[in-house]
């Protein structure tokens, strides 16, 4: 007996398209804000993780690649990786890096720094990405944010694929900052309204 597929079981196509669009025009990276705000809003308003449980296309992509395509060893994730120390630590680190990215964007907005048309992978490796930049309307800061945000998305995809191969398909979900954060919000919310 197999569960019937629902429309949201195909949201992995959206996630995949998002990653591909970033190769053609970096400004599409702005759309990624949706997978920031939707899970947060659901957690804050409804007090649940419906985003993770149903809609998240990234999780679906990993279970497809790791499960259906067999690109996963399907081993247990190491104990330390599922510990709260690591999960919360990674969340904090992720946010620090995120604010650094916002700061960089601000500097470009302000004209202090020049636009850098590179995508930074794993917060370290700078990949030239100029082909995906065709100018921007408003300010170069708009493009800088797009490069920064796409870097975040690509980095988390690469990490997710790495742990998918090494451990279980959706290992990323164990330490995904969005998943950890929405769970924290649910914990806080359901404590005040039991």
């Amino acid at each position: 007996m197999k569960r019937k597929k629902k429309w949201y079981d195909f949201l992995w196509i959206v996630s995949l398209t998002y990653l591909i669009l970033g190769f053609f025009n970096i400004l599409f990276a702005w759309l990624g804000l949706l997978c920031f705000f939707i899970p947060l809003l659901i957690a804050i308003i409804k007090g649940n993780k419906a985003y993770c449980n149903k809609y998240c296309g990234r999780g679906q992509l990993f279970s497809l690649l790791g499960g259906n395509f067999g690109l996963s060893r399907k081993k247990d994730i190491p104990k330390w990786m599922k510990s709260n120390y690591f999960r919360y630590g990674f969340l904090i680190f992720f946010f620090l890096m995120f604010f650094l990215m916002l700061w960089n964007t601000w500097l470009v907005f302000d004209g202090v720094k020049n636009l850098s048309t590179a995508v930074t992978l794993l917060w370290t490796f700078r990949l030239p990405w100029h082909w995906a930049y065709h100018g921007t309307l408003f300010s170069e800061g708009v493009a800088q944010f797009a490069f920064g945000f796409y870097s975040v998305m690509l980095t988390s995809t690469v990490l997710g694929i790495l742990t998918m191969v090494l451990f279980k398909p959706r290992s990323w979900c164990v330490y995904c900052p969005m998943g950890t954060m929405t769970q924290l919000i649910c914990k806080a919310k359901n404590r005040t309204t039991p």
Partner: peptide
């Protein structure tokens, strides 16, 4: 971690994550 991977594979729909 309330990810819901388990919900999606359960053939009996026996799993839920009511409060996230």
């Amino acid at each position: 971690v309330a990810c819901g991977c388990c919900i999606k594979v359960c053939p009996r729909n026996a799993i839920s994550i009511p409060k996230g």
